[in-house]
Write a protein that binds this DNA or RNA. Structure first.
Lengths: 267, 267
DNA sequence: ACATTGGTTTCGCCGGACGGAAAAATCTGG
DNA sequence: CCAGATTTTTCCGTCCGGCGAAACCAATGT
C-alpha cells in the first residue's frame, strides 16, 4: 500500500499519526469507537494510541464526554513552527540581499528561554569560520543579536533576563548590569546594537530587532564580520541597510510603528 | 518513570512524538545525529522514526542537506485546527445566545470536500430528534447551511459543486440545477437561506453564512426546528438574529464588508 | 431488569521493533 | 584527489512489548 516501499516505517508510529490526523481533521471531539471504526483498527489499539497521544499532550481528553480533541502541545508546536516558518520566509530574501551587498555573514535569530538561537545564517564565501552554527544558543548579553532584542523587550522580561548571571564569553563581554542597562538604553534610542569582540575575539557584529504586530521584538537580524574589515564607513552603511531590511520584515509581520490604543477585534 | 503511571503508553509512538517535538521546536532543519544525541536514543531508532514521520509528511526530508524539518501534513493539520478552533471559540457564545432566545437547535458547519460538516451543535431541550449529529457530512444542496455557503462561494467553486450529482434526500429536495441556481441568486441577494423539508421531512432550517477576512464563506450558522413551530413571525425574528450573530463572528474573523483593493502589506 | 452500546482491562502469543555492528555514503582537510 | 573521520543506511538476531480477542465494566435506553 505505501507508494514508497520504505522498509523503515514503524507501524505503531505510523498508525498513531493517522489517529492524530483524523482527530485534527474532524472539527469536533471524537470518541474511541469513532476513530476505530473510521480507521478500521481494533479498538484496543486505537485506545492505546489515544492514551499515548494524550499523554504527550498532542491530544486532549475531555473526561466529561470521553472524547478526544487536539491538545495543547500540538497547538504550541504549530504556533512555534508557524511563526518561525513565516519569519524565515520573509527574512530570507532580505538576508540574501544583505549578503549580496556586503559579502559578510548575515544571521537571523529568535529568543528562546532567555537565549538567542540562530535560526538562519547566510555565510560569506570568504568567511573565516564565523562563531555560531545554525541552532546554537548564545547568551543575550554578549551578542548584538541578543542586545538588539533585549533592549526592546517589555520592562518585565528585560529585568528577568538581566537578573540571571551574566557570564563572560571573552574578556570584552559586558557583565556589569548597570553598564549593560546603559548600553540597552542607547540601543533603544539608536535602534541598533553593535558588539565588538564581546562574544568572540576579533569579530564584530551589528544587530537590529524585528518586531511583530504587537511591537514585540520576536527576532533580530545581524551582520557579523572580522573587526578589521569593518571601517566606519562600511559600518554606517551596514547599519542603514540592516535597519531597512529589518523594517521591511517587521512591516510584513504586521508591525505598525505609530500604532497605539489598538482597537482590537476581541469581544 | 512516567509521572502518570499509564500502562497504555506505546513507546514507539511516544518516542516518535518526542522526535517530532524536537524538530518542530528547533527553528532549523536537524540531522539524524543531532536528534539522536539530544534525545539520547540510539541512532537506528531515531532513523526509523524520522523515516516514518517523513512518510506521513509530518516531517520533510531535505535530501540536499540530509536534514529534517517540519512537513506539510503537520502544517496543514495545524492550519485546519487553528481555523476551526478559532471559529468555534468565536461562534459558541453567539450560538448560546441564539439557543437562549429561540430554544431551537443551533448548528455550526463548515465546508469539506463539497459537503457541509457539522462542527458544533446546541440542542434545544425539547428537541425532537434533530436530523444531524456532530461530525455528520450532508450534501450542500439539501441543507440551508450548505446553500448559505454555496451561494457565496466564488463562481468557480460553486460551479464545480453544482456539477456533481444532486441526490434526493426527501421528496422536497431541489435537484434541478437551474432551479437551485435561481435559489442561490435569491440567497445571495437576501443574505440567508431557508429550507423546508428538503433534507428531512417536517423540519425547517434557516442558514446564514460566516465570512473570513477574505470574504470567503468559511462556515454557516443555522437554526433548525420542526416546521409547525416556525410561524412567519418567529421566522423573521430568527433570520434577523442569525444574521446578527453570523455578522459578529465574521467581523471577529476580520471580515470587512466594504473592503476593496486591499492595500496589503506585501512588499 | 434486560439489552445495547461504548470504554477499559486482562492475558498469552508472536511479529516486528530494537539496537549493535557493519557497510555505504558523505564530508573533511591535507 | 586521496586517506581518515563522520554520518547515514543497511543488516540481522534477539526478545520484548505491542497486539487484539475476549472478558469485564459502566452508562443509557427500552
Amino acid at each position: 500500500m505505501p507508494a514508497t516501499p520504505n522498509n523503515y516505517i514503524v507501524q505503531p508510529v505510523f498508525k498513531a499519526l493517522k489517529v492524530l490526523e483524523l482527530v485534527a481533521e474532524k472539527g469536533h471531539d471524537v470518541s474511541l469507537t469513532e476513530v476505530a471504526s473510521e480507521l478500521k483498527l481494533p479498538k484496543t489499539t486505537v485506545f492505546r494510541y489515544l492514551q499515548t497521544l494524550t499523554a504527550a499532550s498532542f491530544l486532549r481528553h475531555d473526561a466529561q464526554k470521553d472524547r478526544y480533541g487536539v491538545g495543547g502541545r500540538f497547538r504550541s508546536l504549530a504556533r512555534i513552527d508557524k511563526s518561525l516558518h513565516g519569519l524565515r520566509t520573509l527574512a530570507m530574501p532580505e538576508m540574501q540581499r544583505l549578503l549580496d551587498i556586503f559579502n559578510e555573514t548575515i544571521n537571523l535569530a529568535i529568543v528562546s528561554e532567555g537565549h538567542v538561537v540562530y535560526v538562519e545564517m547566510l555565510e560569506a564565501k570568504r568567511a573565516l569560520r564565523m562563531q555560531a552554527r545554525l541552532g546554537d544558543r548564545h547568551p543575550m548579553h554578549s551578542t548584538s543579536l541578543g542586545k538588539a532584542i533585549l533592549a526592546f523587550l517589555p520592562e518585565e522580561e528585560r529585568k528577568a533576563i538581566l537578573m540571571t548571571p551574566l557570564d563572560f564569553k571573552t574578556i570584552n563581554t559586558v557583565t556589569d548590569r548597570s553598564a549593560l542597562s546603559r548600553q540597552l538604553a542607547d540601543i533603544r534610542r539608536r535602534g541598533y546594537a553593535i558588539e565588538t569582540g564581546e562574544n568572540e575575539d576579533g569579530s564584530m557584529c551589528i544587530g537590529v530587532p524585528i518586531f511583530d504586530e504587537n511591537a514585540y521584538p520576536v527576532a533580530a537580524l545581524s551582520l557579523s564580520a572580522p573587526e578589521r574589515r569593518m571601517t566606519t564607513e562600511i559600518t554606517v552603511e551596514a547599519v542603514a541597510m540592516l535597519r531597512k531590511a529589518a523594517g521591511a520584515v517587521s512591516a510584513a509581520l504586521g508591525y505598525a510603528p505609530e500604532e497605539f490604543a489598538t482597537a482590537s477585534m476581541a469581544g
